[in-house]
Design a protein around this nucleic acid. Structure first.
Lengths: 189, 189
DNA sequence: TTGGATTTGTTGGATAAGCAACACAGGAGA
DNA sequence: TCTCCTGTGTTGCTTATCCAACAAATCCAA
């Protein structure tokens, strides 16, 4: 379904990897908002023009980075090629919570702009994956509305969890939250 | 005198660096003799043809690597831009001993071929540096013969030191050895 | 507000790296 | 011996990256 590892020109892989690495460390160091494209290319030791051959701007780069990292989180739990079950849903919620929690500890001063960009990217990913799950069932039940509701609910829960001062035990948290999301998806189980 | 850091195309720097890194780790892993050019380019993730744009073969690569590392050892002790004094000579002997000792602990099964290639490369460097030192004096005394004698003596000493089962204290060793080399260079002091 | 400095995207032409194919040189085994 | 296999250098062509220069946008202090 998701061929993350395509056969690419080694130069392209190398350049992307250099860009991503330096971008990631710059985010940790000084925060997304204050990073310039020149900072990234300087640290990566690539030409600025080359950057623009890969990404439209630093927002596209952030989108790509976040997508990549989140996808890894999903693949780690082998949620990328399955269908809807309450247990898979539970694991997805865990994945999003983990992801956001790590993100907040890895990034300097997460400001509003950064947070909402991340939110957009992640919700897009969640929605696509959920939609895929729900269409795996033979029935022709429309998926857009339930997938939307679940997506927002899941992200909202993970956001709450990752921002809470003293984070509750994650398992307990998800135990409480899961039913409220699952109830909207029962027909696909 | 020795502009190690020229302004090069970043692609060239990157490629050389990748080649050197993978070569170094392969030497540590399986020894120089059994390394193929394909091993190096495979690990470095560069094209084999690109390798040949930089080095004639793996022997040229070894020569380059050893030269580089030795030069670093010399520069670390700021011996690259000075003239002959007994103290500088002492530091050079220390540098060669250190270099060979580290080399032997970093490389898998150092065989005869490897050792003699290293010897040739290092002696060339020592000779050039000594020649430079000796010509810094105003006098027109010929330098070739004394530089040669000192070069071989220094390398011989370092080889003895680095191969000895239980290495004696380096300072003591050099204290004993220094006068035997210095006696031939007194006229340049 | 103005003006200088910095950053942003973009372009055309130069150059390094990638790739596939080739002939050739050992080495191992039937 | 013959063949198979692996590694070596080399070549012509393609593609990605580099570079310098540019106009436009943005910022910031005077």
């Amino acid at each position: 379904m998701l061929p993350t590892e395509e056969k690419l020109d080694p130069r392209v892989k190398r350049t992307r990897s250099l860009i991503l690495q330096s971008f990631e460390s710059l985010i940790a160091e000084k925060g997304f908002e204050s990073i310039s494209v020149q900072d990234v290319t300087g640290k990566a030791q690539i030409n600025r023009a080359t950057f623009y051959a890969h990404f439209a701007d630093k927002y596209a780069l952030l989108d790509y980075l976040i997508s990549q990292k989140f996808m890894q989180e999903i693949e780690k739990r082998t949620l990328n090629a399955c269908h809807y079950t309450p247990d898979n849903l539970r694991n997805m919620i865990l994945a999003v919570c983990d992801f956001l929690a790590h993100l907040h500890s890895d990034c300097a001063q997460p400001h509003q702009q950064f947070e909402s960009l991340v939110e957009g990217t992640i919700k897009k990913q969640i929605f696509d994956l959920l939609s895929y799950w729900l269409t795996q069932t033979k029935s022709k039940i429309p998926t857009e509305i339930p997938a939307t509701v679940a997506t927002w609910a899941i992200y909202g829960l993970a956001s709450l969890y990752s921002h809470s001062k003293k984070r509750p035990a994650l398992d307990k948290f998800v135990d409480d939250a899961l039913p409220l999301v699952a109830v909207n998806l029962e027909q696909f189980a």
